[in-house]
């Protein structure tokens, strides 16, 4: 496992996570359609990722067809990644809950503006990959080139075509990052 300073992350580290994760538990999820957590929830659902909302205040409700759970421990299936939308001081209990899961999640992700080094160290000691102060939707948009449509500096250069995802012309894929994806999936 690489030692990260958590100020910056190699693109391949982030791409690897986003290409691997199939199930995300979203702690601190808000069903308010104007909140960042709802944006991320909807975005990954549209890309075929399983996204499980977690919020004790909304437990039992359904949002976009997904059941909201009160706690991580209540989710009856394995989780690849825990995405945390809670203030830094509330992160540690969430990480402790995640560490009690069996099997362990592969990734703990703290949203844009959220960083808790102590919690990160605890998770890393258990072999879990950690990302802090990033948004997975923005990172997906950046590495897929989708975010370039809104003038954002993706900090990526390539002489290869970006990959268009099936199901629409305005959805792009991440590719493997080695430039051999040829943009053929779902073209046209």
């Amino acid at each position: 496992m690489i030692k990260l300073n958590h100020d910056s992350y190699p693109d391949n580290y982030i791409r690897g996570i986003l290409n691997t994760v199939k199930t995300i538990a979203m702690v601190g999820f808000s069903p308010n359609t104007s909140r960042p957590s709802y944006f991320v929830f909807k975005y990954f659902l549209e890309r075929g990722t399983r996204v499980i909302p977690v919020n004790p205040g909304h437990a039992g409700k359904e949002v976009l067809g997904q059941k909201v759970y009160a706690h991580l421990a209540d989710i009856p299936e394995p989780i690849d990644m825990v995405d945390i939308f809670r203030a830094p001081e509330h992160v540690m209990p969430v990480v402790e809950e995640a560490l009690a899961l069996k099997p362990l999640p592969m990734v703990i992700w703290m949203q844009l503006g959220i960083r808790n080094n102590e919690a990160a160290a605890l998770a890393e000691a258990a072999g879990i990959k950690v990302v802090m102060n990033r948004c997975p939707k923005i990172e997906y948009g950046r590495l897929s080139s989708e975010i370039s449509w809104i003038g954002v500096n993706s900090r990526t250069l390539s002489s290869k075509r970006a990959q268009i995802l099936p199901g629409g012309v305005q959805r792009m894929g991440l590719g493997s990052g080695n430039g051999n994806d040829k943009g053929k999936e779902g073209d046209g």
Binding site: T33, Y38, F39, K42, Y43, E46, G141, E146, I147, S148, W149, I150, G151, V152, N153, S154, R155, Q170
Partner: peptide, 29 residues
């Protein structure tokens, strides 16, 4: 999703355009 800013993408050239976006990303970089 596009109108609500929930997805990245193109709606109308007054708000964004893929050719203008190349210029934007280049100067930002």
């Amino acid at each position: 999703s596009l109108f609500g800013l929930q997805a990245f993408g193109n709606i109308y050239t007054r708000i964004g355009n893929p050719t203008c976006a190349v210029l934007e990303e280049r100067v930002a970089a």
